[in-house]
């Protein structure tokens, strides 16, 4: 995929070219939204809103990291949603955890391993939702979506030093939470 060529075509109004970019990035954007808001339906809405907003504002994107630019739009939309829906924060977390797609995937696992995996998945998502929004965003972008510090800084429009600081605090919070549930950790991690 020649991203630059697709971007140029998209800027000229070629929706087909832009949709090829959408296909490439939609899973990442959806996952970030899902981890951020913890609600599959809301994450869908935010993902769609992100791409529509991106297409409309494409002429303002001059150069640089398109993925980081998309993540910025998505995280802003998540932030707006979380700000406006504080009271509904945990409404659909259970439904999200129950979703079979929101679990570790592994072949040839026993029913017991499957149950533990789901429980860990649930616990991680719950722990994520207790983090402050800024720390959660950094943790999701860097540790789950594997963005570099610089990309995360661009996506969140913050200095790299701030990203490092937030990330360390978020990781420490997750360490403190998971230290109480070590039996849920996969064997290779527990032993490592």
């Amino acid at each position: 995929m020649d991203e630059q060529a697709l971007l140029q075509a998209s800027k000229s109004g070629d929706a087909g070219a832009f949709n090829r970019l959408v296909e490439h990035y939609q899973t990442s954007i959806y996952n970030v939204s899902l981890r951020m808001v913890g609600d599959a339906a809301v994450a869908e809405d935010i993902t769609q809103e992100t791409f529509v907003s991106a297409f409309r504002a494409l002429h303002t994107f001059s150069a640089g990291n398109f993925r980081a630019w998309l993540f910025r739009i998505a995280t802003n939309a998540c932030r707006d949603h979380l700000r406006s829906a504080q009271v509904r924060r945990n409404t659909s977390l259970d439904a999200l955890v129950e979703s079979s797609s929101f679990s570790f995937t592994s072949e040839q696992e026993t029913p017991e391993e499957y149950a533990v995996r789901r429980e860990l998945s649930s616990f991680i998502q719950q722990s994520l939702s207790t983090l402050p929004t800024d720390q959660r965003m950094v943790l999701i972008l860097v540790d789950i979506q594997a963005l570099s510090y610089e990309e995360a800084a661009r996506a969140l429009k913050t200095p790299v030093g701030t990203v490092k600081s937030r990330l360390s605090r978020a990781r420490e919070a997750m360490r403190a939470a998971l230290s109480t549930q070590r039996e849920l950790l996969p064997a290779q991690i527990r032993s490592g």
Binding site: A15, V22, E23, Y30, E44, T47, R56, F102, D143
Partner: peptide, 28 residues
């Protein structure tokens, strides 16, 4: 270990296509 667990979090497939419909008015 924490970072390892987080990086093992699976990627949830997108539930549908988020392709935008062809706009009636092209944004140029």
């Amino acid at each position: 270990s924490v970072v390892g667990v987080l990086r093992m979090m699976p990627t949830v497939p997108a539930p549908r296509s988020f392709a935008i419909p062809a706009p009636a008015r092209v944004f140029v």
